[in-house]
Design a protein around this nucleic acid. Structure first.
Lengths: 225, 225
DNA sequence: ATCTCCTATTTGGTATACAATAATTTTTGA
DNA sequence: TCAAAAATTATTGTATACCAAATAGGAGAT
């Protein structure tokens, strides 16, 4: 099982999936809206068939919901959902960090490089948030990979997913941003020391403080759109 | 998001999904075998369309794998996979147990009823293993529900899944079976005492001992078929 | 106003056709 | 003989057309 994944390069269906997913993530299609097969098909210039398969995948990964004989509609997320997601993320990622800390396969050099680069970006005058987000994703994903449990990254991807995408570093205060960067570097130190408990604790702090920072503007976001 | 799920009652596709899934779980279709669309379609007396959707769902929940322009084939599972799965199960279910212990919504009466009924069955002369398995699933699922995190049960279902289905209580020694029943009852005691740490510890013991019992005959299973 | 019936819309499913791709077999050429 | 090339075959991926069933919404009747 382990390695192979074959992430479905089958052109049309995949394009449709990515396109619709993008519309949801970007907010172009809002929560609760219907995803009409025919409409999307003409919009994307494909037939209903790949659209249906794409919708099936969106439903499968929890981004949308299927109502029999009615169709598929985009999911809506409450603060309670975010809370549940963050609790699980805390549980799984801190476990991953503790496992990665004692795994000899863990590439500490890579992680440090990522942490340092993120710090540089964050400390610049006008941080490139998009790049920062990419590096951050890479960093967290790498840790999960180094945990040695190949299922871990998959599961987390299926939980964390979409709804958090719009909550980016751009919303952090400067203090929050710098603290986040400090966490990254401290985590690498913990890995270097092969200290599982330390790594786990830093990851907990990191995610918890991130969640705390986000909670503020989630309600705002709900109000102004 | 929380409650609603709309578990797709759309006849044909669902029937196909269940049928193919059943063939995999029962071992009729073995790991590594191809799932041919046309073949399955005639076998099930439906067209290729619902078969394709069913295969998509099987791929989505990790039971099968897609190889572009080649088709879908049933996954193969190694002992390493089982290990990873059990580690995650331990993490998530013990978390669930600890949360359920202090949740006032937890229906201790129901759980005790289940635990007692399982004990009765296990202590009888010829235990009805199928019924025992059902009750056990209900018991574990109920705890996850009482954890208060609605995502927890979903995630676990997506991990534990299939590959473990064939590893049933029927393979347990009498001692292992009775110990498992003791764990269930002890867990209810921990819930009644609202002792999160206790509940968590019992769940850890429970799953770890179960995994230990299974490890033995997994290799056997691999050899004799 | 409420209930019933009708109609439009949309899904869920079938059937069929066909291009693209990968595997297999056959043929070719040294 | 045997490896490379070419032809054949099998199967997926997509499109298209069509139809039954279900739902929503509105017209009309009570």
């Amino acid at each position: 099982m382990s390695a192979r994944q074959e992430s479905m390069a089958s052109l049309t269906t995949d394009v449709a999936y990515q396109a619709i997913r993008g519309k949801i993530l970007s907010g172009e299609i809002k929560g609760g809206e219907w995803l009409r097969e025919a409409e999307l098909a003409v919009q994307l210039g494909v037939s209903r068939t790949p659209v249906r398969e794409a919708l099936g995948r969106l439903v499968a990964d929890g981004l949308a919901f299927h109502e029999p004989n009615r169709g598929v509609r985009v999911g809506e997320w409450t603060i309670g959902d975010f809370n549940e997601i963050y609790d699980l993320r805390l549980l799984l990622e801190s476990y991953g960090a503790s496992m990665a800390a004692t795994n000899p396969e863990t590439d500490v050099v890579l992680l440090r490089k990522l942490a340092d680069e993120m710090t540089n970006i964050a400390e610049s005058d006008s941080p490139q948030y998009a790049h920062l987000t990419d590096l951050n994703n890479t960093f967290h994903h790498a840790i999960l990979t180094f945990s040695g449990n190949s299922k871990l990254a998959t599961i987390l991807a299926s939980i964390v997913q979409v709804p958090l995408v719009r909550l980016t570093f751009a919303r952090y205060t400067r203090a929050e941003l710098l603290r986040s960067m400090n966490h990254h570097r401290e985590m690498v130190d913990a890995f270097e020391a092969r200290d599982a408990k330390w790594a786990e604790a830093v990851m907990r702090s990191h995610l918890r403080s991130g969640w705390s920072a986000m909670q503020g503007f989630i309600s705002v976001q709900h109000l102004d759109e």
